[in-house]
């Protein structure tokens, strides 16, 4: 099984719902965003960018690409970043030594470091006493590696896990569940009958920075008009 995702950029309306629910469900501290949506080439989201022969405006959601040839996994000196049996690139929060080599190696800028204790950042944000958000339980893989916990330890790296806590239960990642435009599809790249493979047979999916050979498992259907 190899999980993958297809994002149809013609359907994406740039509402950033995926980014916000990702932040919520994965309990990201203020200042940390695993999932981002921007308007390529533009300083401001949803403002047209200068482009060849005029202007262009489309929206590009970017989170972890779960690369087959993942540079982050290769550079990790302690194997804290690994690809699991379902093709998800995960981080063992109990093994990461915080060297941040993976932040330098990742071409997509998706890796986020815990520069301070996330509990501290959340406390400073001034939430109501006793308030917390996100999936509340720690989640471990089959070998017992800690791949999700609401408050990551200080000094480790974190990023999108394809919502490991949900996909392990057969649910889709929260960005897929929540997209109001239905722009995101999620499924098994090894299953020829999965919906994403049906779509990818019909339309040519493109991957970001394909020339680097990282072989992402997130495909984009490019906008027909930019």
């Amino acid at each position: 099984m190899r999980y993958g995702m297809v994002i149809d950029l013609d359907l994406c309306v740039g509402c950033r719902t995926c980014a916000v629910v990702c932040k919520e469900h994965n309990a990201q501290a203020p200042g940390t965003w695993w999932n981002r949506v921007f308007t390529p080439g533009s300083k401001y989201h949803q403002i047209p960018a200068e482009a060849e022969g005029g202007f262009s405006m489309y929206y590009l959601p970017v989170s972890c690409m779960h690369c087959e040839n993942a540079p982050c996994e290769k550079v990790c000196p302690v194997g804290a970043t690994y690809t699991d049996e379902r093709g998800r690139v995960l981080i063992d929060y109990e093994r990461c030594i915080g060297c941040r080599y993976c932040l330098s190696a990742c071409p997509y800028g998706v890796r986020q470091f815990n520069w301070e204790d996330p509990k501290g950042a959340k406390a400073r944000a001034g939430y109501q006493e006793g308030y917390s958000y996100g999936y509340p339980f720690p989640h471990r893989d089959k070998e017992g590696r800690l791949v999700y916990t609401p408050d990551r330890p200080k000094g480790v790296v974190e990023k999108c896990t394809f919502c490991v806590q949900y996909t392990d239960k057969g649910e889709e990642p929260i960005c897929v569940q929540s997209c109001p435009a239905g722009a995101r599809l999620f499924g098994d790249l090894d299953d020829p009958n999965s919906r994403i493979n049906q779509v990818l047979r019909k339309e040519k999916g493109e991957r970001l920075l394909e020339e680097l050979g990282t072989k992402p498992k997130v495909f984009y259907l490019p906008p027909k008009r930019k």
């Binding site: 290769k74 000196p77 804290a80 060297c99 815990n114 000094g155």
Partner: peptide, 23 residues
């Protein structure tokens, strides 16, 4: 001093990943 988790330095010896130039 660059390590975020200097306390886990021992992981370098327990779980070395020999594809990493760092190890």
């Amino acid at each position: 001093v660059d390590l975020g988790r200097a306390d886990r330095f021992y992981q370098l010896f327990f779980h070395p990943n020999f594809r990493s130039p760092l190890i």
